[in-house]
Amino acid sequence: MYQRKSPWLLWMIMLGIILFIPQLSIAKEQTQQWEIVNPSGVIETKYFKPAPRLTSLEGKTIVLRWNEKHNGDLFLNRIAELLQEKVPSAKVIKLYEIDKSTIKISGSANESARIAEVIKGLKADIVIASQAD
């Protein structure tokens, strides 16, 4: 009888060890109090009013601006046709045909300002622009 009980006891001890060892190996991460710095940065607040709006396109100078993204010029060409058909008193200027230096994604604040000055020089009443993509 003694000889038959001994393996049983050994198996129980080994089972206990097997179950206990993983608990030891997974160290529980400690909860702690952190004081951290918010890394997001405050958004720069500037405020510019949008330009005064028009109530009609009749007799206005409408500048069409293309940023060189594919097919944007074709889109604006069709808009020009529709404007001439529906609002014949309007003067439609395709900026991309009269000043090729403006056909671009400006890429810098200085260049954006330059393009805006070109448009201002045309005495535009409104700009219709094609963006992307």
Binding site: R65, D125, V127
Partner: peptide
Amino acid sequence: MVDQSEVEKRGIPTVTMASNQFL
């Protein structure tokens, strides 16, 4: 878009076409 923004700042209104993926 920065270009149109600069135009608005000069007192000229704009309308910009943008695809729904880039709006």
